[in-house]
Write a protein that binds this DNA or RNA. Sequence first.
DNA 1: AGTTAGCACTCCTCATCGTTGAGTGCTAAT
DNA 2: ATTAGCACTCAACGATGAGGAGTGCTAACT
Lengths: 340, 340
Amino acid sequence: MDPRAEQILDHIIEQYIQTAEPVGSRAISKLTELNLSAATIRNVMSDLTEVGMLSQPHTSAGRVPTDRAYRYYVDKLQKNKPEETIQDEVWPAKRPYERLEDLLYEAAQELTEETHCTGLLLSPRPASSKLNRVELIGISGTQVLVVLVTQAGMVKNRIITLKECPEQEDLNLVASKLCELFLGHAIGDIHEGLLETLAGKTDRLSAHAIRIGKKALEIETSGEVYISGGANLCGFPEFNNQASLKKVYQEFEDKRGLSRILNEMTRSAGLHVTIGSENQAAGLESCSILARTYGTTNSLLGSIGIIGPTRIDYPKVIKAIDRSSRKLSYAVDHFLNSNT
Amino acid sequence: MDPRAEQILDHIIEQYIQTAEPVGSRAISKLTELNLSAATIRNVMSDLTEVGMLSQPHTSAGRVPTDRAYRYYVDKLQKNKPEETIQDEVWPAKRPYERLEDLLYEAAQELTEETHCTGLLLSPRPASSKLNRVELIGISGTQVLVVLVTQAGMVKNRIITLKECPEQEDLNLVASKLCELFLGHAIGDIHEGLLETLAGKTDRLSAHAIRIGKKALEIETSGEVYISGGANLCGFPEFNNQASLKKVYQEFEDKRGLSRILNEMTRSAGLHVTIGSENQAAGLESCSILARTYGTTNSLLGSIGIIGPTRIDYPKVIKAIDRSSRKLSYAVDHFLNSNT
DNA sequence: AGTTAGCACTCCTCATCGTTGAGTGCTAAT
DNA sequence: ATTAGCACTCAACGATGAGGAGTGCTAACT
């Protein structure tokens, strides 16, 4: 693409992000240093419309960037990013955190306030969390309360039902056996395969351990989605009617769509952006989602980011998310080290 | 108040609930069996306006019921209610529930779908829950994971930090001592007073128990608010602008206002209704909240209900809530009995 | 050949202005 | 006490027209 056309497109996008109004050729001619007449800009705009970067609400209106234009814009932003000159951001811990979740929520809320958008957070995937502790507590004839403590300090509990439930003493033995054998392994891995290593053993304890472990370690493979500041969407002109808001809020309730998108984003490190129709969720086709992974140096735990209209201030929001995710990573690292 | 005026007021309210449009004198004259001319109706309407039961959007529009009118209407509905002829509603358990919460959420969702409003649920107040089991699990030098199991089958865990943490063996002894002494007592009561009964004892274990129990049993005194179907509010004509929606959604996020209202409602058995400005929460002055307590015969656990615009179909919604809360009570009872 | 001024054209926006109609309040007759 | 009649109010609607922002095209300019 013509470099001059690129420049013009950038200006149109930035102008539209600021004003939410279709951008005309005159505005670009006046507001930029290009010293080009409106007529010239018009020719370029016409070309950009032909290649699907701009659209017109109606014949005599200005131009609006398409999803494709935002995609191009964001890709360029990422490419020209100053080479990760980043000093680690420090989290000014306001108070000691008891639970990892508290830390995560606070980070998301801070990001929400900073960007005036809606914050998204994907918590660490339980199945990928490393086992630190198992406790089995018989609570009735057939039911056992399973308490799993991960090395990330998260506590999960579930109640499982067994046909025949061993005595509490045996449960304790099974629990400590599981701990001993699988300490530090991902819970999902233990459940999916490692338990089988016990299959050869014929002692009573191992048999119990397999049977109970198979149920006790069955755990969510996706992280949980936390949403903060959903009401902020009511501030955007693109959501000025009930129908458009309803679609998004429905996605906020049935979180499966968001969960899929955020889990997908957590598969590789760094910033991920999905724009408008790129979102694989029916209600989010007029939204953009930006999120960045957080975690320790050698493992991605989850993602933190925001959701807003496709006309979102990408540069500003990306900066905020970068900072946020770094601060959060720092804090999580600190949290984990101080707890082991 | 004149019985005829009452009749007319009822008709106006019911008409307005159906149409969401100001109701005129002609409509009442034609639609009712009263055989009164529009002029007569007008006179009555004028009186009703004077006593604050009706209001006019503008001079030449019909009348709209005020909050006070809805209050009068709901009070009458309650008074004329057929004397609790109620057969217990049965919950057709679709699947076995592992956790009490699952049961509660499903009840709220069912109510939401039935009423097309937004469902509210207040879960049992942890501090009022009766203790069934305590486990103390040391997870680091100074931190102890506390697992509380209530007799309602709810599991709560928190992490507490102790200056000096006893060995796991001692923790186990403390836990079983606490269990033994306080089984079946409300956790809040134990924390507030019962622990003191140990103060006389001078043995090491009792000292530990007081110190740890004071921290371990510190627990929320309010139930948690669960909201289901928030997007449904987007369907009502009264919320057809961003500002009005935003106010309500902000209350959905910072749940303190709703929590206060629902907790208050749970103090006495039965149906509770707060209408418009009666709601002690800034964002809810154009909403009505209806909720009914649920629980076992001798203890109120929480409340289930709905929130919608003040122009809500009170008779229908009240019926739905009554049914729902009875079904839920039945199910909770069943759940508790099958688990002990 | 790229750029630009000029111009006709489109079409949204906004204000104006009757018109309509639903609804009211008042009065006088029943 | 009730009601018919009537004047009045005011939102809603549609038509009309001016204004203006913006476009696309063409012809002239560098």
